[in-house]
Amino acid sequence: MVQGVIMHRLGSTILLLLVILCVVLLLEGAAACSGGRCELGDRCSSEGDCGSELYCYNCWIEFAGKRCVRTTVADPFKIADTSLPFNKYAFLTTHNSFSIRGEPFHTGVPRITLYNQDDSVTDQLNNGVRALMLDVYDFRDDIWLCHSKGGKCFDFTAFEPAIGTMMEVEAFLSANPSEIVTLILEDYVSSDHGLSKLFHSAGLTKYWFPVSSMPRDGGDWPRVRDMIRRNHRLLVFTSDESKERAEGIAYQWNFMVENQCKLQRWKFLRKKPRC
């Protein structure tokens, strides 16, 4: 009987301590900042908590709960003007730029795949992204953006016909005559000159940076101001080596290098990226 009373009191004490701890944590979070006073990295509960050019976001890979994160990036052409070679600048790039959460189902079949982005391609560009990584496939007698595997697109992995995204890029370049955009294609298109027809249909060829003008062997690229003056403001790279000769689309590994970095910083592992 005495033991039962002791256990009951101990359980009540633990419960009371947990309640107090929860209240303290809630008060601490609420008192941290609000009303637009939260800074980058601060915890938040709504958009109104965060300061200028920040928004409240939950990135479960990097941190638990919502924090204030950036909505735009610094413009390298405003920091260092446009007098340097193109390869002397760094640009924000989005991986699987088309894999957008909330994108409608265009095949009539629910999509079963992973999502990488919350913003439309137009919003990504307006927020400072200057390079888009896109996966292009032959699908339904057209070229589609698809987050799939094995080089084949399916109804449940397809996002949309690529023409829509290409027209978004064209609209951005047209509205921003001093900007340069790079497209990096994971290319599974085998239809005859399919990509060339796609870029022509989207009105992008007038911005095309010709592969014949791209530097070889690690040399410097033209100065940004010269690229803008010549309207060479769209750079396109493909993972299909044959397209460079067949369609004049640069094979990416003739002009790029990549450092391998394996992201292991999952919240349940608490490990840093290994590069």
Rank of each mutant, 00 (worst) to 15 (best):
V121W: 05
S99L: 01
T82C: 10
V136A: 13
Y115A: 14
T107V: 02
M133Y: 05
N116E: 03
M133E: 07
F86T: 14
D119Q: 09
L92Y: 10
V109P: 06
T72Y: 08
Q124Y: 01
Y89I: 01
S120E: 02
N96D: 08
F98Y: 04
T122M: 07
H106Y: 08
M133S: 09
D119V: 09
L125M: 04
D81E: 11
T94Y: 02
P110L: 11
T93Q: 10
L132Q: 04
G128F: 00
V136T: 12
Y89H: 00
G102L: 00
K88L: 11
T113C: 04
L132G: 03
I100R: 05
D135G: 08
T113A: 07
S99G: 05
R101Y: 09
D118S: 13
N127S: 15
A80V: 13
P104M: 02
D75A: 09
P104L: 00
I100C: 06
V73I: 12
P104A: 03
F77G: 05
P104N: 01
P85V: 14
D135L: 11
N116G: 06
D118F: 11
D81I: 10
V73S: 11
V73M: 08
A90G: 04
F91T: 06
N116W: 09
K78P: 12
A74E: 11
L92E: 12
D118Y: 10
T122N: 08
D123I: 06
V129F: 01
S97R: 02
I112W: 14
L134K: 07
G128Y: 03
H95L: 02
P76K: 06
N87F: 01
T94H: 03
T107H: 00
D81G: 11
L125Q: 00
S83A: 13
T93Y: 07
V129Y: 01
I112N: 14
V109W: 11
P104T: 02
S99M: 03
N127K: 15
K78R: 15
N87L: 01
N96E: 07
L134V: 12
L114C: 15
T107P: 00
A74C: 09
Y89T: 00
H106I: 12
I79N: 14
F98L: 00
V121E: 05
L92Q: 14
T122D: 09
